[in-house]
Amino acid sequence: MLRVKNLKFSYKHQEILKDISLEARPGEILAIIGPNGAGKTTLLRCILNILRPARGVITVDKQDLLHMSSRERAKLLAYVPQAYPPKFPMTVFDTVLMGRRPYLGWRPAREDLKKVTSILEIMGLDSFSAKDFDCLSGGQKQKVMLARALVQEARYLLLDEPTSSLDLKYQLEVMQLLCQIVNEKNMAIVVAIHDLNLALRFSDRVVMMQNGTVFCSGPPDKVMNQDNIRTVYGVNVESFSNQGYNYLYPVSSITRNDYR
């Protein structure tokens, strides 16, 4: 289990995260939601030790992450960031191979190359393996970065807004792929996400953040109710069900005609 307890992070004397506590369990998707500035990305970066918390404990299977080497940590946690460098002059194969860095010696072993080939086939990216990463579409790049994280063979996968720049087809494809990964590999996935309907449909548990704190957490349908969303987001929503899925939509008294 990935466990965060009483986590605090400050930047230039400004408190960004305040006593954050949460758990991510194998076999589930934990969605972290909240408005811009709530602290979602900062929380992920603290868990990964990209940012050093001022206080708190972060453990994986009772091992203290903050006192591990970067190589040891990378064998437990894999990360898919929200954005990539504007130029990434590598082939798809070499980009995914970077995920094997925690296990590499001076050069990749035959087993490393086999694992990369296998994950590219599983994700339907094998036909792109020799293509430059920079030449891919946004959806294809996201799948490549996810493949790079999976070939790392970590037990916990952290993703920061994996659907933010994708069209509807790729959004569903990525989220369905995460569900498949959780079921087949019994991983724990922590995903910071803005789209409440994707979180409602695909997550097992939700942590709702507000101003650097955990406002509430629990099952998606309990956390993402009208009162909580009104308090945290300042927006009124209605809910409806269709084909067994629950959906939210914002309610406003202002329409397009009011501006004409």
Rank of each mutant, 00 (worst) to 15 (best):
242 N>Q: 15
241 S>I: 07
135 C>K: 14
202 F>L: 11
180 Q>W: 11
60 V>Y: 09
246 N>Y: 03
258 D>G: 05
198 L>M: 04
201 R>T: 11
76 L>S: 08
251 V>Q: 14
173 E>S: 09
209 M>E: 01
50 I>V: 15
121 E>C: 12
181 I>Q: 07
176 Q>P: 09
230 R>E: 13
166 L>Y: 06
161 E>I: 01
193 I>P: 01
153 E>A: 08
138 G>Q: 10
118 S>D: 15
200 L>S: 00
199 A>R: 00
94 D>H: 14
184 E>G: 04
259 Y>N: 09
209 M>G: 02
217 S>N: 11
108 P>H: 04
242 N>E: 15
91 T>Y: 06
114 K>P: 07
106 W>R: 12
219 P>A: 01
197 N>E: 08
114 K>R: 15
46 C>N: 15
195 D>P: 02
41 T>D: 12
134 D>Q: 04
138 G>Y: 10
235 V>E: 05
71 R>V: 11
21 S>K: 08
27 G>Y: 02
51 L>K: 09
83 A>L: 10
75 K>C: 04
1 M>E: 04
28 E>N: 10
28 E>L: 04
88 F>E: 01
114 K>N: 14
87 K>G: 06
218 G>H: 00
200 L>W: 00
26 P>G: 01
179 C>H: 06
138 G>A: 05
146 L>S: 08
89 P>H: 02
235 V>L: 12
84 Y>H: 13
237 V>T: 02
14 Q>N: 14
18 K>A: 12
242 N>I: 14
218 G>N: 00
111 E>S: 12
51 L>N: 08
79 Y>R: 08
136 L>W: 00
126 D>V: 12
46 C>Q: 09
159 L>Y: 03
257 N>K: 15
233 Y>N: 04
113 L>T: 05
217 S>F: 06
204 D>E: 06
231 T>P: 06
221 D>R: 15
76 L>Q: 12
1 M>S: 08
84 Y>K: 04
83 A>C: 06
154 A>P: 08
9 F>Y: 11
184 E>S: 11
206 V>P: 02
146 L>E: 07
147 A>C: 06
152 Q>I: 08
107 R>Q: 12
4 V>C: 11
97 L>S: 02
192 A>L: 08
83 A>R: 13
167 D>I: 03
21 S>E: 06
4 V>Y: 02
80 V>I: 05
47 I>V: 14
163 T>C: 14
256 R>W: 13
178 L>Q: 07
229 I>F: 02
182 V>G: 00
174 V>N: 04
192 A>Y: 07
205 R>Q: 02
221 D>T: 15
249 Y>S: 07
238 E>S: 09
246 N>Q: 13
64 D>I: 10
179 C>Q: 11
231 T>I: 13
185 K>Y: 10
226 Q>K: 14
180 Q>E: 11
215 F>N: 09
6 N>K: 13
178 L>F: 05
248 L>N: 07
198 L>P: 01
234 G>T: 04
73 R>D: 12
122 I>P: 10
227 D>N: 14
154 A>R: 10
233 Y>D: 03
78 A>L: 07
194 H>M: 05
158 L>D: 03
142 Q>S: 08
176 Q>K: 15
112 D>I: 03
44 L>I: 12
88 F>D: 03
173 E>P: 04
80 V>Y: 02
162 P>W: 05
167 D>F: 05
239 S>W: 00
59 T>C: 03
221 D>I: 15
248 L>F: 06
94 D>L: 12
214 V>C: 01
147 A>D: 04
157 L>T: 13
203 S>Q: 01
85 P>Q: 03
